[in-house]
Each structure stands twice: as C-alpha cells, then as structure tokens.
Design a protein around this nucleic acid. Sequence first.
DNA 1: TTTTCCAGTAACCAGATGGAAACTGCCAAC
DNA 2: GTTGGCAGTTTCCATCTGGTTACTGGAAAA
Lengths: 115, 115
Amino acid sequence: MVLKVRKKVTALPGCPMSKCMDLLGGCWTPEVLWSLSEGPRRFSELRRDCPFISAKVMTSRLRDLEQRGVLSRKVMPTSPPTVEYALTELGKELLPAIRSIVDVGTRLLLRDPTP
Amino acid sequence: MVLKVRKKVTALPGCPMSKCMDLLGGCWTPEVLWSLSEGPRRFSELRRDCPFISAKVMTSRLRDLEQRGVLSRKVMPTSPPTVEYALTELGKELLPAIRSIVDVGTRLLLRDPTP
DNA sequence: TTTTCCAGTAACCAGATGGAAACTGCCAAC
DNA sequence: GTTGGCAGTTTCCATCTGGTTACTGGAAAA
C-alpha cells in the first residue's frame, strides 16, 4: 500500500480534503500514524510494525510528519540512544480519518476476502 | 492535493488499511469520488468540479476506478455522446472514509485557517 | 573478541506517473 | 463556414521518490 504526495503541490486554499490529505498523504503515512495511534513508539518498534517500509522512507516520513507538527520526536539520553515518537494533538485529530479508512477496509475484506 | 499509488504494489493480504487505500489511493482519487458522492456526473462536469486535474489523469483515474469496480461508466447514445459516471455499491462503501477525511480537514481548517 | 542492536545517513538507480500541449471526430448552433 | 462543446487520446518530458545497499559509532551481550 503505497501512498505518495508531491511536495510542490500544497493544499488548495480552503479545501478541507486538501488540508487533511496534505498531512495524511505520503507513502506509508497512514500506516505510521496507525502504529502510533496506540501510544508512543520507538524507531525500531515502528520498523517492526511496518517491515515493508524501508528505513529510508520511514525516516523521511517521520521527519516530514515532525516538521508538520503531526508527531513529536524525543531522543532519550540512553546508550545506545533510543528515540521516541508520539502523536501530537494535531496528530490525534487525524485519527478519526485513519480509523474510518481501517473500518471501511475491514468491511471490504469481509465482503471480499481475497487479498 | 496529490495522492499517488504505485500499481506494482498490491494490497497487503488481509490488511484492512491496505485494502481500502488500494481503492482510495491514486492521484486525485478522493476528489473524484467526492464529486461523485452526490450522484452521477458526466465527464465534463467532473472536469469542472476539479479543474486542477488534467484530462489525462482524470481519464486514467476514471478507467482505474471503473476497472476496480468502484464506479460505472455509461455511454449515452446522444450526439455528441455523453458519458455518465456513477459510484457502484462498492464505491459507496468508500464514502464513510472520504467523509471522515473531509470532516477532519474541516476541523483542521477551523483550528488553523491558513491555506 | 566478535556480533548485535540502536537510529539513522549517503549514494545511486529505475520506474512510475503526472503535466502540458496538441490532436481527434462528430454534431449543433451561430 | 467556423466556432464550440463533448469525451477523450497521444506524445514527450521532467521529476519525483521509493528501493537497495553499504556505512556510521558506541555500548552491551555472547
């Protein structure tokens, strides 16, 4: 499941869908947010949650989302250093949309169990 | 708002999000479905609804969605011929997710009215 | 002492795909 | 007779962007 967003196109002014997709769009973004919906997670945990996302993309997705204020990144002073990602308030606003997508997907799987 | 899907990656077996995004993903797909949510529309109407979508992409998106069973395409025997697109039952199943995205976007616009 | 884990980063490649612009055929209206 | 609308199609181009592989450096476990 790959979802991309082109960076040069910003949200259409005043368009709700655009506003939301500007944060949700981007390859694997929904998966990452879904993983974080249960609570904070570390980088390696996210990687294990979504083994199909390469490290490079995972990193860039997390950086994007951090910059847009959707999630926070906290480096713990441990050794080896661990990093904790968590949804911000803004990020939590996105959850209803994510849940709805998952709900619809679940219903689709019930009606047609092929992959 | 640009949303892409790579065709070579199919839905992850048994993953609800994947199953749903497989249909929702693709550049401008949510916009097209949103336009159709009120009822059937003709090609030129869709083009006017979403002037930022090029004819080429609009066509390919409609063909994709038709092939996936999300919408139906009916050529009316008029001259010049008109073509009517409408959501199928499957397509209507997607609407809750679309609505949810729009809802979240609306809420985001309220909290931060910048484009 | 070698391996593993942590959280990445850098370099390079290939393919997908959206954008722009031009063109189609047919009919109706002006 | 030419303009306009319908519903596209075709071509070419640029670029975006994700995948893969290799590498980092320190600490702890084997």
